[in-house]
Amino acid sequence: RIEDVRARRQRFEEAGTTIIREPGRVITQERGQTFLRHDENARFARFGAPISQERRGGEIWTTWARPGGGQLVSVTDLDGRLLRRIRRPAGGGEHVIVDNGWRRPRHGVRPVIVILPPIEMLNPGELTILNDGHEAETFSSTWSLGPVVPLDQVYELDQVRFSPSLRSRMRAVELGGISFDTGSWALDQADLNALSLVASAIQSVLGASPNEIFLVEGHTGRGGNEIDNLSLSDRRAEAIAEVLTQMGIPPENLVVQGYGDTVP
């Protein structure tokens, strides 16, 4: 529960940045902006121990054997920040399924936020909300749509992750059937039933296009404090991703992020 996490938080100040460490997560506050990061490799523990881990310059390459053949490589920087995810199919070859840039000589802890003009045509009514009346096809068809307005360029993962105006270029499905107890990220049986529909919808998208990346976003209401909300929303989004993976969605096709009480 979030109370247990809160009790184990440690706070540091470092050159104008506040760094908050808690189990599994680091939260940084700088120039009025707050970012949460978690261990991007944690969900790959499902594959068992890595078959190799090596340092290459400023990068750490961790490789897992995937059940059913092939390999997954996760490349991070020395602080554990995700740089690339690479899939090596059993038949040979290599696909970079996530490229998070970070190769230029710049940046401290802050990702570059991209601000695009708001989208006039996108209103809340266009959000597809999961409920009992929906079929899996409703979601897979929402996910198969392209950006709501044309894009001039493509971006690094963290730009997409931390830029609301970029994310809003792609339509989201809201999981209306999922509820959490206050301060908790546990899921109950009713949640699991609702998630099996989501898993089959993602499965059908991946069946046609296996390298698609889905962002699982956690959001909370305004009550409570900002840091608790960030942590809680990230843990809930991760819990959803874990269940989807138990239901057959490869963990490397998912990216998880909690946004706390900021507006989705």
């Binding site: 490229d99 894009l151 970029l166 499905v173 809201e174 959490f180 989501v198 962002l215």
Partner: peptide
């Protein structure tokens, strides 16, 4: 409100 959203983001990514 507590919400979970899932978005396919591949078209935005390099």
């Amino acid at each position: 409100d507590d919400r979970i959203l899932i978005r396919r983001i591949t078209p935005l990514l390099a």
